[in-house]
Design a protein around this nucleic acid. Structure first.
Length: 860
DNA sequence: GTACGGTAG
DNA sequence: AGTCCTACCGTAC
C-alpha cells in the first residue's frame, strides 16, 4: 500500500506519478490517457514545480556519477572486478538456503476491509483516504490509474465515479489482529510490517508438521455468512482453483489456486486437509485468513526475507509463489526481475542504475565491479547481495524505537503567532505520545515545509532529555524562531510543521536518572550505584571487582569521611584516584579506580564522583556526566562560587573580587552538608527552577528571573560567578576537545590560571588566601584542608590528589568549551557556557586544541 | 551532531 | 482549492 505505481519509465515527473502496468479491461483507461490526465491536473502547481526541481537534482547526481564513470580506467575496473569477485566467493560460501521465510501481504487491505463491511461498495471503484491523499484503492479503481499515494482530487479526475472512503484505522487494526492470530500459530516470532504485511519463519513449523496427524491439518469452511459475501462460495472457488468470488477485487485476475493443488485434499464437503509442504502451509494460512476475515492475502515463500517479499508480489492478488531453496532457482528468479521490484530500491536508485544500463537484477550482477567504484561500500555491497539473492534468513525483532515525531500539513500559515501556537500544539501531541511509551529524548528536530514544498529540518540536542510539552517546546520554539528570523522581514510561509524527538535514553540511563535522584536522598550510600549492572559480557568487570570491592572515589570517601566524622580511612583506600579515560572506539567515559584500572569493556556503566555534590554517579558517556555536573552547579546556584583573587598585574583580565561571596560560600558549604544529611534533594531545586519559569537551554538552567531571588545582576556577574566556580570545580569540556587531548596521567599541564602569574585563591575550607601559580597546588591545599591533615602525608606523594584536580584530566571532562552541537546561538548563553569573558576564555588550550567552534562561540 | 534525501508502508 | 504521515537509514559535512 501507499506506494506509487512502479515505473519502468524514467523520464519526467509525469510518468512517475502515472500508471504503467494498466491491465487491459473493458473499463478503465490506458496508460497514456492516465498520464495525460495526471499531467493536466498537476501541471503548473507548486507541487509539480518542486517535483521538477527534485528531478533535476537527481539528474545532477546522475551526471556526476557519469563523469566519475568516465574517469575509470580499464585497469581500475579489472582490479575492482577481482576484489568484488573475491567477495562473491565468500558470499556464495555463506549462502544459507535452510530457512523457509514467508511474506504475507493482505490484498488492497484497507479497501478490502471497507468493501467487506459495506456491500454497496462491492462493485464500485473505491479508494481509501481523503481528497488530498489516498492510502490504497481496490483493483477496480486501479484500472483507472487510481493508486495509493495519489491525491484524491486527481483520482477523481481519473475516475469520476470513484468512491473515496475515509480511513478507519481502528477497524483495520482489529482485522489485522485477527490475521496476526493466525500467523502466530505458524511462527510465534513472526514480524509484522505495518497492518497488512508480515514475515514468518516457518522452518520450525515445517519440521514439526511432518509428524502431525491429518486432522491437525484439516480446516473447515466458515458457513456462517454474516456479511453479504458468500463465504461458502468463496471457499469452494478457493479449492477448485476458480476465480475468487470477490469480483470487485479480483475481477480480472487469474486464479490464485490453480497451481500446486495436487496435495490439497478435497475430501469432506465442508473441510480441507492441507499437506505438509511449505506451499501447503502457506495455502493453509491464506485459507484460514480468508475464512476468518473474508479477506484475501498474497504470499511469497523463499529462503530469505528479501526474496520472500518479491515472491509475494509475483502472484498478487490472492496468489502465492515460492522459490525453492536452491541456488539456481534463486538466480533464475532474479534473472529478468526489474531492480525496482527489490525492496529498498526506489525510483531514484532505479533511475541512477538505469543510467548505467542496469534494469534487471542480472545486469546488476554483471556491473558489480563498476558499481563498487561508483557507489559507497554500503550501497554496492547491498547491490551485490541483491543480485546474488542474499538476504536475512532470520527475523529480528525490531529493537528499540529511535525517534518519535508528529507533523501536520495545513493551508498556508504565515504569522509567527500562529506558527508558535501550532508548534506548541505539536509539542503537546508529541509529549503525550512520548509519555505513553515512557520515552525521553535529547534531540528535538523541527521540520518545516514551505509553500513551495521545500523541506527543512532543524535539530538541537540538549544535555538533559526532554519529554514534556514545555520541555520540547522550549527547544522547538528556538529552532522555529531562528527560521522565522532567517527570512525576516518576509514572513515564513509554511504548509507543514513537524516536531521529532530522538536520542532516547537507554534503559540504563533511565534507571540512572531515577537512581541519581534517590541517591541524593540516600545521602551517599557507597554501594548505591554499583547496582547499575553492566550489560552481558562484562563478567570480568565483576570478577575483578569482587576481589577488591569498589571503594568509591577519592571525593566520595572524603565526603563520607566528613559526614561520618570517621577517623578510619586507611591510606590505601584514600588513594583511590579519579581519572578519566576515553576509549575512542566506544566513546565511553571511564572512571578508573585502582580496582578497575584495566577495564576496557565499552558497555559498562562507568562510575565517577561528582566534584560538586560528591555523589557517585554512573554514566555511559560524557554528556551525561557533564549534565549532572551542570545540574549540580546550577543547583548550588551562583552563590556557591568560590572567590578568586587576582593580582593587580592582571586585574583587567579577571573579574574583581566580590566580597559578599566569601561568607556566603562558607555558609552554603554548611548548608549543603546539612541538606545532604537531612536528605534534601538538591536536584529537585534544579528542576524546580525550570518549572518556576527559569528556562532550560542546552541542558543548562538559566537562572530564575523571578523577583525576590538574588540574581547576578549582569552578564558579567554571571560570567564572574562561573569563572569562580571554574576554579574549584573545573568545568565541562567538549567531546572533541576531550578526544583530541592526550591522556597523559599526572602531568599537570596547562590550566586557565597557570598562564597567569601569582593568582590568589581563597580556600573554601579554611578561608585563607592561598597564593598559587597553578590549580594543582591550590587543589592540593584544599584537599589537605578537607581532610584536616589526615591525608596530609599522602599529598607529599606524587601520585596523589594532583590527579584528582589535575587540570589535564579535568579539562577533558569539565573545562570550558562546547561540542559542535551545543554551539550557543545567543550571547548570554555563550557567556554562561564559557564562564568567562571573551578575551579571558580563549586560553592557550582553547586556541590550540579546541575547535574553532569554541572560539567562535566565545566571540559571539 | 546536523541537514538532507531515499525508501517503505 | 488542491499532493500525507511516521520511521528508519545512509551520506556529507
Amino acid at each position: 500500500m501507499k506506494k506509487v505505481a512502479n515505473s519502468s519509465c524514467n523520464d519526467g515527473v509525469l510518468l512517475r506519478m502515472g500508471l504503467n502496468d494498466n491491465k487491459a479491461g473493458m473499463q478503465g483507461l490506458d496508460k497514456e490517457k492516465i498520464n495525460k490526465i495526471i499531467m493536466e491536473a498537476t501541471k503548473g502547481s507548486k507541487f509539480y514545480e518542486n517535483e521538477l526541481k527534485k528531478d533535476q537534482q537527481v539528474n545532477q547526481r546522475i551526471e556526476k556519477m557519469m563523469q566519475l564513470k568516465e574517469k575509470i580506467t580499464a585497469q581500475q575496473l579489472l582490479k575492482a572486478q577481482l576484489q568484488v569477485d573475491k567477495l562473491v566467493i565468500e558470499l556464495e560460501q555463506s549462502r544459507n538456503l535452510n530457512s523457509t521465510i514467508v511474506h504475507i501481504d493482505m490484498d488492497a487491505f484497507y479497501a478490502a476491509v471497507e468493501m467487506r463491511d459495506n456491500p454497496e461498495l462491492k462493485d464500485k471503484p473505491i479508494a481509501v483516504g481523503s481528497m488530498s491523499m489516498l492510502s490504497t484503492s481496490n483493483y477496480h479503481a486501479r484500472r483507472f490509474g487510481v493508486r495509493a499515494a495519489m491525491p484524491g482530487f486527481i483520482a477523481k479526475r481519473l475516475c469520476p465515479h470513484l468512491t473515496i472512503v475515509p480511513l478507519n484505522f481502528e477497524k483495520y487494526t482489529k482485522v489485522s489482529k485477527e490475521v496476526r492470530e493466525v500467523l502466530a500459530e505458524y511462527d510465534p516470532n513472526f514480524m509484522p510490517m505495518g497492518l497488512d504485511e508480515a514475515y514468518l519463519n516457518i522452518t520450525d513449523h515445517l519440521e514439526e508438521r511432518l509428524n502431525w496427524p491429518e486432522d491437525r491439518r484439516r480446516f473447515f469452511f466458515n458457513t456462517e455468512s454474516t456479511t453479504g459475501i458468500d463465504s461458502m462460495n468463496m471457499s469452494t472457488n478457493f479449492n477448485k482453483g476458480e476465480v475468487s468470488s470477490s469480483p470487485v477485487l479480483f475481477e480480472d485476475s487469474t486464479s490464485p489456486m490453480d497451481d500446486n493443488l495436487q496435495q490439497t485434499d478435497l475430501s469432506e464437503g465442508n473441510s480441507v486437509v492441507f499437506g505438509t509442504s511449505a506451499e501447503e502451509v502457506v495455502k493453509e494460512i491464506r485459507f484460514r485468513i480468508e475464512q476468518k476475515t473474508q479477506l484475501t492475502a498474497s504470499a511469497g515463500i523463499a529462503p530469505n526475507t528479501m526474496l520472500a517479499k518479491m515472491c509475494s508480489d509475483r502472484n498478487k492478488p490472492n496468489g502465492q509463489y515460492r522459490i525453492s531453496p536452491e541456488r539456481l532457482a534463486v538466480l533464475d528468479f532474479l534473472k529478468d526481475l526489474p531492480i525496482r521490484k527489490v525492496p529498498g530500491i526506489g525510483k531514484v536508485t532505479e533511475k541512477m542504475l538505469k543510467a548505467l544500463g542496469i534494469v534487471t537484477c542480472s545486469e546488476l550482477y554483471q556491473q558489480r565491479a563498476l558499481l563498487s567504484l561508483l557507489f559507497s561500500e554500503v550501497s554496492w555491497r547491498n547491490f551485490l547481495d541483491i543480485s546474488l539473492g542474499l538476504g536475512s534468513t532470520h527475523l529480528e525483532k525490531d529493537g528499540e524505537r529511535k525517534s518519535m515525531s508528529t507533523e501536520r500539513t495545513f493551508s498556508e500559515i504565515n504569522t509567527a503567532e500562529d506558527q508558535y501556537s501550532l508548534c506548541r500544539e505539536l509539542c503537546r501531541d508529541l509529549a503525550q505520545d512520548l509519555q505513553k511509551e515512557g520515552l525521553k529524548g535529547r534531540t528535538v528536530t523541527l521540520k518545516l515545509k514551505n509553500v513551495n514544498f521545500e523541506v527543512k529540518t532543524r535539530a538541537s540536542t540538549v544535555l538533559s532529555s526532554v519529554s514534556t510539552e514545555e520541555e520540547i517546546f522550549t527547544v522547538a520554539k528556538d529552532l522555529l524562531g531562528t527560521e522565522i528570523d532567517s527570512v525576516a522581514p518576509h514572513p515564513l510561509r509554511i504548509r507543514l510543521m513537524g516536531v521529532r524527538v530522538s536520542g532516547f535514553l537507554t534503559e540504563e540511563e533511565k534507571k540512572y536518572q531515577q537512581k541519581s535522584i534517590t541517591s541524593f536522598l540516600k545521602s551517599g550510600k557507597e554501594t548505591g550505584f554499583l547496582r547499575f549492572q553492566p550489560e552481558k559480557s562484562n563478567q570480568d568487570y565483576f570478577t575483578k571487582n569482587s576481589e577488591a570491592p569498589f571503594r568509591g572515589s577519592f571525593f566520595d570517601q572524603k565526603r563520607a569521611a566528613r559526614k561520618l566524622n570517621s577517623e578510619n580511612i586507611s591510606p590505601n583506600e584514600s588513594r583511590g584516584k579519579q581519572l578519566f579515560h576515553d576509549d575512542k572506539s566506544s566513546a565511553n567515559l571511564v572512571e578508573e579506580t585502582k580496582e578497575v584500572t584495566n577495564l576496557q569493556n565499552s558497555n559498562v556503566c562507568k562510575i565517577f564522583t561528582c566534584p560538586v555534590c560528591f555523589e557517585k554517579q554512573s554514566s555511559k558517556n560524557l554528556e551525561e556526566l557533564n549534565k549532572h555536573i551542570d545540574e549540580c552547579l546550577n543547583g548550588m546556584c551562583v552563590e556557591d562560587a568560590v572567590e578568586l583573587f587576582k593580582n593587580d598585574s592582571s586585574r583587567e583580565n579577571i573579574p574583581n573580587f566580590v566580597p559578599q561571596f566569601k561568607n556566603e560560600y562558607v555558609d552554603k558549604c554548611q548548608k549543603n552538608k546539612t541538606d545532604q544529611l537531612s536528605g534534601t534533594d538538591q536536584s529537585a531545586s534544579v528542576s524546580d527552577s525550570s518549572a518556576n519559569g527559569g528556562t532550560e537551554k542546552f541542558g543548562q538552567i538559566i537562572p530564575d528571573k523571578s523577583p525576590g531571588k538574588q540574581q547576578p545582576s549582569s552578564l558579567s556577574d554571571i560570567a564572574r560567578n562561573m569563572c569562580m566556580k571554574q576554579c574549584l570545580f573545573p568545568k565541562r569540556v567538549s567531546q572533541d576537545h576531550f578526544d583530541k587531548t592526550e591522556h597523559t596521567e599526572g602531568t599537570s599541564s596547562s590550566c586557565f590560571f597557570e598562564t597567569k602569574e601569582d593568582s590568589v585563591l581563597v580556600c573554601p575550607v579554611c578561608n585563607s588566601e592561598q597564593k598559587t601559580t597553578d590549580l594543582v597546588s591550590f587543589n592540593r591545599h584544599v584537599d589537605v584542608c578537607l581532610n584536616k591533615g589526615l591525608i596530609q602525608e599522602l599529598t607529599e606523594k606524587d601520585d596523589f590528589p594532583a590527579k584528582t584536580y589535575n587540570m589535564e584530566n579535568s579539562n577533558r571532562v569539565f573545562s570550558g568549551g562546547l561540542s559542535k552541537g551545543q554551539q550557543c546561538t545567543n550571547p548570554s548563553q555563550g557567556a554562561k557556557r564559557s564562564g568567562l569573558t571573551a578575551s579571558e576564555s580563549v586560553s592557550k588550550k582553547a586556541k590550540s586544541s579546541n575547535s574553532k567552534h569554541t572560539i567562535k562561540m566565545f566571540f559571539k
